[in-house]
Write a protein that binds this DNA or RNA. Structure first.
Length: 245
DNA sequence: GCGACAG
DNA sequence: ATCTTGTCGC
C-alpha cells in the first residue's frame, strides 16, 4: 500500500512517528515482537514461488540510503521484477537496531513491486537477535509477508562448524537456545546464517535459502538485491530519474 | 570497566 | 555497510 513519504527531492522520508532514539526503538521492538507468527510452516520449498530479495546501500556523507527489492522465480532463479527506492538515513547503525535504519526505504521499494512476494529474503537476522526481533521479523510483522533472514556472519551467537558439504547445517545458538542455523550452501565454502523472520519454519527457511543459493554462497535474491541497490545508490544525483522507477 | 557486535 | 590493487580462474 501507500508508504508515500516523498519529499521535494523525490526521496523517501521515514514516517513522522519513526523512532529517533534507542529508547524509542527498543520500545517499538518490545511492542511488535509479540506479533511475530512462528506457527506457520510457510511456503513449501520446491513449489512455484516468487522470492523477493531486499537489501540497502548507504552514503552516510550524503545522508542517502538506496533500497532494492528484486523478485525471482524461485525455481529458475530468473528475475521477474525489480524495484528501488531512495531515502534519507532513518537511524544510525546500532547492533540490534538495524531494522530502524533499513526498513522505511525497503518498504518503499517493496511497495513498488507489482508482484506479490511469496517469500521475502532479508540480508541479516530474524529471530536470531538479542530480543528475538531482528530485521526479517520486523519486516514480516509490518508487511504480513513470510520472511526469513540470511546473514553472512554469526553476529554474537555461537555455532559448531557444519559439515563440509552443501546442505550441511548446525545450530546457531544463543546460550543453549537454537535461534537459527549455520547452513553450508556450497561445498567447502563458509556457511551462511539462517533464521526465521515471520510465518516460516526454520526447516523451510533453510530449505529455501539452500535452493536460492544454487550457484553461489549467498542466495540469488540477496545477490540481485545487493547489486541493484548499489547501482541505485550510485545513480543518485545523476541526470535521469530520481527514484529509480 | 572493556570489548564485541546483523548491515 | 564502506574504503580499495592486484590477482587467480572460468
Amino acid at each position: 500500500m501507500t508508504t508515500a513519504h516523498l519529499d521535494h527531492d523525490g526521496r523517501e522520508n521515514p514516517p513522522g512517528d519513526w523512532p529517533t532514539t534507542e529508547a524509542e526503538a527498543l520500545a517499538v521492538q518490545d511492542e511488535l515482537r509479540g506479533r511475530v507468527v512462528t506457527d506457520e510452516a510457510g511456503p513449501p520449498p520446491g513449489e512455484p514461488l516468487v522470492a523477493v530479495g531486499v537489501d540497502v546501500a548507504y552514503d552516510d556523507e550524503r545522508d542517502v540510503v538506496a533500497a532494492a527489492a528484486v523478485a525471482l522465480d524461485a525455481q529458475t532463479l530468473d528475475v521477474v521484477e525489480e524495484a528501488t527506492a531512495v531515502g534519507r538515513v532513518a537511524f544510525p547503525y546500532v547492533p540490534g537496531l538495524l531494522a530502524f535504519r533499513e526498513i522505511p526505504t525497503v518498504l518503499a521499494a517493496l511497495d513498488r513491486l507489482t508482484v506479490t512476494p511469496g517469500l521475502v529474503v532479508c540480508d541479516g537476522y530474524g529471530l536470531a537477535h538479542p530480543r528475538r526481533f531482528g530485521l526479517a521479523a520486523h519486516l514480516g510483522v509490518l508487511t504480513g509477508l513470510p520472511t526469513i533472514g540470511v546473514a553472512k556472519n554469526p553476529f554474537t551467537f555461537t555455532y559448531a562448524p557444519p559439515g563440509p558439504r552443501r546442505g550441511d547445517t548446525s545450530a546457531l545458538l544463543d546460550g543453549d537456545e537454537e535461534v537459527g542455523r549455520a547452513l553450508r550452501t556450497q561445498d567447502g565454502v563458509k556457511p551462511v546464517f539462517v533464521s526465521v523472520g515471520h510465518r516460516v519454519s526454520l526447516d523451510h527457511a533453510c530449505a529455501h535459502a539452500l535452493r536460492l543459493a544454487r550457484d553461489f554462497r549467498l542466495p540469488e535474491t540477496t545477490r540481485a538485491a545487493d547489486s541493484l541497490c548499489r547501482r541505485a545508490l550510485s545513480g543518485v544525483g545523476e541526470p535521469g530519474r530520481s527514484t529509480g522507477v
